[in-house]
Structures are given as C-alpha cells and as structure tokens.
C-alpha cells in the first residue's frame, strides 16, 4: 500500500541554512580572534572562554527547563553569547565572576525578555556592563606576559601618548586588553568569513568604523584615526556585536542609521566621556533605538510612490 503523502503550504523547498547553521558560522568567524587571545594571553584565556560558554548554555537549559519552555540550547546562540562575553573580559577575570556575568546575560537579558529574537539589548554586552558596575577593578586590570599594562586607549585618555604600543602590535593583538578584542587582524579574518557566507552585510561594520575614524580625526585625537579604530574593542564591537540580528535594524537603511549612531556615541565617549573605551555602551544605547529605527526605515512597497523626497 502507498504511504500517505505529506501536505503543506508552499514553498516546498528551503535554503540550506537555519538558525543553528548561522550561529555555527558566527562561532567559526569568532575562532581566529579566540586563537589570537590564547596565543597572547595564554591558556587562562581559553579557560575563561570555556567557563562563559558552559555557563551560558547551562543557564539557558536550566531556565527553559524550569520555565517549561522548549529547549533551544541546540541553536548555538547561547554559545555565541558566551564566547562574545568572554572576548570582552580581561584574561585575569576570576572564573566565578565570568560565570555570574554569563548567567546574567542569558537569564536576565535574554530569557526574561522572551528568549532568542526578543531581547532588546545584546546579552553579551549587557552582561559585560553588569560586570563592569559590579566589579570595576577586576574588570579593568590588564596583564600581558605577567606584567600589568594599561590599554592604549587608557593611555590616550591619560594623556601619555609617547609610550603607546606600535601600530603593528596593535594590529596583530600583542597588547593589553580583553581576550578577544586585541587582534584586529584575527577579527578581520572573522569579518571576511561572515561576509563570504552572507551572514552579515558590510553596512554596520564599515559605517560604524568609518564614522569613528572620521569623527576622531575631526575632533583632533592625538593618535590619529587609524590608531583610534584599531585600538580597543571597536573591531570586535562593529563586526560581531553591533551586527547581532536581534538587536540591530532589519533594513540596510536602518542599519546605516544605527551604525552612524554607534560611531557618533563611541567617538563622543572616547573624546569627552569618563571611559577610555565606549564601544559597548554605544552599542547598548543604540540597541534601544532599534524599534524606532525599524519603524521609520521601512522598505518601499512595490509600486508605492515615495512619500518623502
């Protein structure tokens, strides 16, 4: 006897990707920066990453179990959050702090707001902000080869630009800083992977970094625009955090507006603010504007005459 046929609404074929595949590619794109982090900061960096990823996945699983929700740990988004949070932490961070930050990111920032696709700010960045305000000293102590050092941006803020590391060291990542942010070269490899696989478009990273370069040059920062964009977490933020699907606008037009805002805020914080950095707070603030941007930066419906301009 013939087996019954499946009946469903068209289309009957599907692009070969799903959320899990996309997240796996993001993890792959993050790998070069992670390897650079381990190379420059040692195995402790790897241990921090493992703690964050494990804490994120376990806390998502436990939360969904307790809340009697469908378990979605398999989509790998919690692993991406964990890895991104680790990349934003100093290698010397105590493990328990990293674990608490991860739980905060997943449970409070992501799951309290409805889980994947519903959180209003980037969980990894919000987790970092939570840790910065809870443990400011361990979160800003940088060591490289056993010696504590200031980050280049902190030196610029402090006015001591004669001891700045060479731009070459900055580019490959041989400087003090967070685990995944220091190697611009490794982050650019990741950017290339994301672009090649069509995971993200160039709009947010290029406009964000371009805006920071233009504004810091215009505002006369002493180290120059190239130094400014390579130093600190700008590449990590612009390529991997500001492009988070859930917390960035859905249209290209909206993404450009969003990236301009991120660049403006980052430059203002660096030049006039109390923090030497500014990437994470800029993105967090701009995350909150996304519903508004999405409301105005809508695609034009076929045949509809443009109402403005």
């Amino acid at each position: 006897m013939e087996r019954l046929l499946a009946v469903s609404s068209s289309p009957h074929i599907h692009a070969p990707q799903n959320t899990r595949v996309i997240m796996a590619w993001v993890l792959a794109a993050l790998a070069p920066a992670g390897l650079a982090g381990v190379y420059f900061f040692g195995y402790r960096a790897a241990a921090v990453m493992a703690v964050c990823v494990a804490s994120c996945k376990i806390s998502e699983y436990v939360w969904q179990k307790l809340a009697k929700q469908t378990i979605t740990v398999g989509d790998l988004s919690a692993a991406v959050t964990g890895l991104l949070l680790a990349y934003n932490l100093p290698p010397s961070i105590p493990f328990w702090m990293a674990a608490v930050g991860s739980v905060f990111a997943i449970v409070v920032v992501k799951q309290f707001f409805g889980g994947i696709g519903c959180n209003i700010v980037n969980p990894a960045l919000a987790g970092r902000a939570f840790m910065m305000s809870s443990w400011p000293v361990p979160m800003t102590s940088w060591t490289l080869d056993g010696l504590s050092s200031a980050t280049p941006l902190a030196m610029i803020k402090g006015g001591s630009i004669e001891n700045l590391p060479r731009i070459y060291d900055l580019f490959i990542g041989n400087i003090g800083g967070c685990i995944g942010e220091t190697s611009a070269a490794a982050l650019l490899i990741g950017f290339a992977i994301l672009l090649y696989k069509g995971i993200i478009s160039w709009h947010i990273p290029v406009v964000y970094i371009g805006t920071v370069a233009a504004l810091t040059a215009a505002l006369g920062r002493p180290a120059g625009p190239l130094y400014e964009v390579i130093a600190g977490g700008l590449f990590l933020g612009a390529i991997f955090m500001a492009t988070d699907y859930t917390t960035s606008p859905m249209t290209k037009k909206g993404q450009v507006i969003f990236a301009l805002g991120c660049g403006l805020l980052t430059s203002l914080i660096r030049v006039f603010g109390g923090y030497p950095e500014g990437v994470s707070y800029s993105i967090l603030i701009m995350n909150l504007t996304v519903p508004l941007i999405d409301k105005f930066a809508r695609p034009r419906i076929f045949g509809e005459v443009k109402k403005h301009g």
Partner: peptide, 18 residues
C-alpha cells in the same frame, strides 16, 4: 522556531514587504 530578526525575508521579498 523563533524569528531572529535577521532580515533575510526583507531582502528576498520582491514586493518590498516586511
């Protein structure tokens, strides 16, 4: 599964819908 707001459906829609 849940929408992740990736925007691929915007890109594909020939009618410019969301």
């Amino acid at each position: 599964s849940a929408c992740i707001r990736c925007g691929r459906c915007f890109e594909g829609c020939p009618m410019g819908l969301m």
